[in-house]
Each structure stands twice: as structure tokens, then as C-alpha cells.
Simulated assay, not measured.
Amino acid sequence: MNIALRWQSLPGLALDAEQLGHLASLCLKLEVETYPKPGLVSHVDNGAHRDMDAGLLCRSANILTPFFCDLAAAGAEGAGMNRLRAIGVAAERAMLAATSGVNTHRGAIFGLGLLCAAAGYRNAVGIRKSLGRLVSERWGEDILSGPVSLRSHGAVAARRYGAGGARGEAAHGFPSVYDLALPALHAARKLAPHDEEAVRIQTCMTLIADVNDTNLLHRGGSEGLHFAQASASAFLATGGVGSPGWRRRAADIHHAFVARNLSPGGSADLLAMTLFVDRLEV
């Protein structure tokens, strides 16, 4: 069964921990099955990456599935941040072992993992708060006060350029997902009602245009970030996926990112999180 069919075959909103874990993994694979995304790996090419391809990313997503399940189950049991962090560390070790040390999904383990935990908690308690709000309320202080990764390129860039990074995003309830990406995704479905890949591309472009992506800062500094944001903004200003010839323009932007070695990995993670939240929020 292909990724789209597996996505469609999942049941409704109240998924159990195992289903939530599989949903999170599917969202990572749907992000890969999206082209053209500027500078990012897809089923078509490797983007600006020399150390990973679509097959590696999909294998990584499969490796992470049981850990996402564990995070959802831990959330359902009311776990604190220390337990969630321990599961996340184990997930990262398994990822690195499976990829020979390539960081395929460190950011997604963190962001999607917290959303899995929030979904598990919400199902167990039976409340109607958004997943982002639950993450912020239950674990936000611990996220900000917890240990800082010294190895992550994104964390280094966040410190150097003063960007909020993944920690700030999660602690504040994922505003880039709820205030930016979800509205863009819903609007894109009106522009391209029969093309979910186009919807994902429009959502990804919206994220690139507005997020201070620490992966872009790491690869290209402030100049690279500004180039990326301007390119995505120009695509959206001309109608995005609702305008004729949009695929060619999106591919041109993709190739320009590759030429500059730019890859908005933070936006890719946020796209996967947006797909996850979209499936679960009313």
C-alpha cells in the first residue's frame, strides 16, 4: 500500500498510541513524497544534501515509529518531560545507528514526539484543547529550562543568530504550525482541491517565507535566510500553486537553493508536524 493510501486508511480523530505513532511516521514520509520543495530531499532528487536520500529518510521514519508510539503512550500516562526526553534520546540513538550517523530526523523526533505525547494525553483525559496548547501548558517550562544540545547545527545557529529555534517553537505551542502553516494548508486546498502534493508545497513555501529557519542560518547565514525567504515570498505573491506554471517556478527555486547549498530542514519538520496536527484537530 502506498503512503497516500495508508494515510487515507487511518481512522478518525481518536487514535490510540500505536496509531498515533504510525501517523507521525507517515507524516514524515509524506514530507519526503513532496516535490519540488526548495533544497530538500524528495522522491525525485536529494536536494542540497549529499549524505541522505528519500530511501534513507523513509527508513529513518520507520525506525522512529515505535518511539513515537511510546511517546504517545507516555503522554497518555501523564508522563513528565524527563520521561519524554529519555524516549527521545533513545529514538535519536536508534536513528543514528540506522543511518550510520546521519541526522535525518532529530528535529522531528523533538517536535512530532511532543505532539504525539500531547495527543496521547488528550485522548486519555478527554479534553478538547489543541495539541500545541497542551505541549506549552504541560511541558513548556521544562522545554526551555532543559539541557541544550551542543551538537545540533540548528541549536548552534539559534545561539549565533538569536533565533528561537525548535525549543522556542515547542514551548510556545508551535505558533508556526497553528498561526502560519495550518491556515496556509487550508487555503491551499481551495487553490488545489484535488492535489494534496500541491497543498503540501504551498504550505512548505509559506513556512520558508516566514520562519527564521535555523538550518538555513547554519548553511547560509543571514544572507542565505533572506534569499530563501524572498524566493518563497515571491512564489506566493504570484499566486503560488493557484497560478499557471507554478511547478516550473517552484522547481527553479528548488534548483537555486541547491546551487547555494540551502536546505530549510526546520520548515520540513514543521510541514510534517502540520500534517499531523491537521489530521487530529477538529
Rank of each mutant, 00 (worst) to 15 (best):
M1T: 14
M1A: 15
I3F: 01
I3W: 01
L5E: 14
S9H: 12
G12Q: 15
G21R: 04
A24Y: 11
A24N: 10
E33G: 07
K37H: 08
G39I: 04
L40Q: 03
S42H: 11
V44M: 09
V44F: 06
M52Q: 07
P66D: 00
D70Y: 08
A73R: 15
G75Y: 04
A76D: 02
A76H: 02
G78V: 10
A86W: 06
A91E: 01
S100D: 14
H105D: 10
H105L: 09
G111K: 11
G111C: 11
L112C: 01
C116P: 13
C116K: 09
K129T: 15
L134E: 10
E137L: 11
E137G: 08
A157T: 00
A170N: 06
A171Q: 01
P175T: 13
L180R: 08
L180E: 10
A181E: 05
H186M: 14
A187Y: 00
H194D: 15
H194V: 12
Q202I: 02
V211W: 00
G224K: 01
L225M: 05
H226I: 10
H226M: 07
S233R: 15
S233E: 12
A237V: 01
T238H: 10
G242N: 08
G242F: 03
R247M: 11
H254G: 03
H255K: 14
H255C: 09
A256R: 07
V258H: 00
A259W: 02
S263L: 09
P264R: 04
G265Y: 06
D269Y: 09
L271M: 11
